[in-house]
Design a protein around this nucleic acid. Structure first.
Length: 284
DNA sequence: ACCCAGGAGCTGC
DNA sequence: GCAGCTCATGGG
């Protein structure tokens, strides 16, 4: 992979890297498409307390105003650039999954901050993506650290567990989180106390991690699996939500066994999700 | 007015 | 175990 460094960091001829697919496949909630930008695709957002504007230009991906150090330390791991998605796609045996992968070959699993992922997917339960985004933005604006980016505008980092614990359950409820407020508050308390130790969690297997996460109120199998996949790089972690349940019924039936997807089941899950939700739905 | 949204907890059997 | 109800909120 060739990367040029100047004012911007530029990946030349990026493979398996489609900004719209990456940011619209439901794995993250803080990057949004820049509707003003017409000569390609441009997204802006905040991760790891940093603002990023990233756009495509032909086959190049341009990380605007990004120093080499930030690219290597933050965005390279965030966009999972060390992983060979082409090889993973080529290895998929299942016919339907292979077709979904072909049509979603630009997806990459973002390596997000574990704490933010836990909260985001607690918020996601019985909820829809636009409203999830709105709630997370409100929580960030009220309790996250404010900073000014190179565009001169103010942005907000996702708040720490300490900040949300100190804010209290009532203030979290006021962000329109509804019945999830007590869950978020419980998660913040358990992370702060070390009852759920994020650093220790990084050493656990996918199954062990799920078991630990599910000790947090409001974290069940689906939220735990999403956290493992998007926050801890457990690519075998296979979240089953309403969309994937539909996919299983529609293409695989009752005899479905996740093990057919192997060690990259989680990545394949994203291909299936993207196909069903973004490709088929857009045809309607 | 109803239904649903990247679910999970609780109750009753 | 596991089906059925409930949980806030907002958009269609």
């Amino acid at each position: 992979m060739e990367v040029l460094f100047g004012k911007d960091a530029i990946i030349k001829n990026a493979e398996n890297f489609d900004l719209a697919q990456i940011f619209e496949c439901g794995q993250q909630f803080r990057f949004t498409r820049d509707s003003e930008y017409k000569s390609g695709v441009r997204y802006t957002g905040v991760a790891f307390g940093k603002f990023l504007a990233v756009r495509s230009c032909g086959n190049d991906i341009i990380f605007e105003n990004t120093a080499k150090s930030d690219f290597e330390n933050i965005w390279y791991p965030y966009f999972d650039l060390d992983r060979d998605y082409g090889a993973i796609i080529a290895s998929i045996g299942d016919a339907h999954a292979a077709e979904c992968a072909r049509l979603g070959s630009g997806i990459r699993i973002l390596k997000q901050e574990p704490w933010e992922v836990i909260c985001s997917f607690i918020i996601s339960q019985n909820n829809n993506i636009p409203r999830i985004r709105k709630i997370i933005e409100t929580i960030s604006q009220r309790f996250g650290e404010k900073f000014v980016a190179c565009d001169g505008k103010a942005y907000f980092a996702f708040p720490s567990a300490e900040a949300l614990k100190n804010a209290g359950e009532a203030a979290i409820f006021d962000c329109r989180t509804g019945f999830r407020a007590k869950y978020i508050y419980d998660a913040a308390c358990k992370v702060c106390s070390g009852e759920f130790d994020i650093e220790h969690a990084k050493t656990l297997s996918a199954d062990e991690l799920c078991a630990e996460l599910m000790k947090i109120k409001g974290v069940g199998p689906k939220v735990a699996a999403c956290t493992g996949l998007f926050g801890f790089s457990h690519c075998e972690s296979f979240p089953i939500d309403v969309w994937i349940k539909r996919v299983i019924n529609k293409y695989y039936g009752d005899s479905f066994d996740v093990s057919v997807f192997g060690e990259n089941a989680g990545i394949i899950q994203q291909y299936l999700f993207h196909y069903e939700r973004n490709i088929l739905e857009n045809d309607k």
